[in-house]
Design a protein around this nucleic acid. Structure first.
Lengths: 228, 228
DNA sequence: CGCGGCTTTGATGTTCATCAAGTAAAGTGG
DNA sequence: CCACTTTACTTGATGAACATCAAAGCCGCG
């Protein structure tokens, strides 16, 4: 028979390699759905009932929340191998946040019932799941605390460093979010984000051309992030 | 033989009632340690290695983080039946935050190795664990987002309502935190927290006498919390 | 009694949101 | 393809929200 899932670097797949017996593994592979999303397309809407466990295979997404006044807050940026079903999955029948693609993206989706069954039957899988969820949520919480300590300039620097270090692994990149979205990540207004970016440019910390950003003086940017 | 753990309302205990066999259950009960803490005593210090899974049996605690500049940020308030080992336990070998008692408290502590073994062996237990951890961390994240949307007055109202509704279930209570700690929960300065409390008092929303607080106009306080 | 920490209030200045107005970029329909 | 509309971006000016500084009162503790 052999394994049908071909996604080599999938974390879920490596979790399955605890001692999932082959019949279950085949069932998972059969029930697995891949979905493709265009840039800006919605993947999950707040309030929607949780049917599938969603995993990001390719692309980049934002997890966010809409307030009554229409204002949006970005909770996290998800990259390949991250669980999109970060919050809510095991704590609520419905999503408490929304997810949208920032780049063309591909998800891998598995019915939650199967994931639940696997947790019940396979201890190694359960343990891997707990660890992965913990790491994800812990990172979100610690990041929130980190950002909260900083002022405008530090927060903007923080976001720029996040994209360089955690997403693109390069000093030059096309930033996948609008100025307004940067503001929603750090809890400031888009005007002030723009002003700060202009200052950074004037101070020769960055080169900016629309969405194209090149970090020129990373050391100083890190200093600002840590407190400037 | 029978069950030796006598804590009737313990969530861990109810998790064990999946289908934990009796020998394991007895082992857990044997290895269980109870520790008592005085008010203000430290329960966990950041950086400490995680040996035990800690559960709050009695009292009230704060989970917090110390920054390099000596400033502290409070992550959450833990009440009985809450997991003190909220973050880190399954994601890191060492604690990334500190815990201290706000009231005389009693913890129940179980070696993490035993919890790990149980997760591996018992699916129901694993599932319960995942759900409990998810609920806890999700609540923290959503609370952070909620607070971030609000201004000073709304944030102070938020904290007061938290203590009335979630901790004391009463309109009158002795607040277990200092003004400075309220500030550390909501990310403001203690001076401004005090000023706001004084305003609330002048506006007949509250009666305040030191740490003794009585909420007089809860409706208006809720309105302020939701945005004022 | 006196010292130090927590609390309170007032005065001042900084940081940031809001408002306004204009430019550039990108999608829309004829 | 070009006028048209809309949306994102940018800069400046103003005011509100909040931090900081300063000083005094309170309380518990050695």
């Amino acid at each position: 028979m052999g394994v049908k899932c071909t996604c080599e670097h999938c974390d879920l797949r490596s979790l399955f390699f605890g001692h999932v017996n082959e019949s279950i593994l085949n069932k998972v592979c059969e029930m697995r759905i891949e979905r493709e999303f265009q840039k800006y397309e919605s993947i999950i809407s707040e309030g929607q009932s949780i049917e599938h466990f969603i995993y990001l295979k390719k692309g980049l997404v934002k997890l966010y929340r809409l307030a009554d006044d229409g204002k949006s807050q970005i909770i996290a940026i998800g990259k390949p191998l991250d669980f999109v079903s970060l919050l809510s999955v095991f704590s609520d029948p419905a999503y408490k946040y929304s997810v949208a693609a920032l780049e063309p993206s591909v998800t891998c989706e598995i019915p939650v019932s199967i994931i639940r069954d696997l947790v019940l039957v396979n201890g190694t899988f359960a343990m891997g799941m707990i660890q992965k969820i913990s790491k994800t949520t812990d990172a979100v919480i610690l990041d929130f605390l980190d950002i909260r300590r900083k002022h405008l300039r530090g927060r903007v620097a923080h976001v720029l460093l996040f994209f360089t270090d955690s997403i693109y692994h390069s000093l030059e990149f096309e930033i996948p979010v609008s100025r307004k979205e940067i503001a929603e990540i750090i809890g400031m207004t888009s005007e002030n984000v723009i002003r700060t970016l202009s200052e950074f440019k004037k101070d020769n910390l960055l080169k900016i051309n629309g969405k194209q950003i090149q970090i020129v003086d990373k050391d100083r940017l890190q200093a600002i992030s840590q407190h400037g």
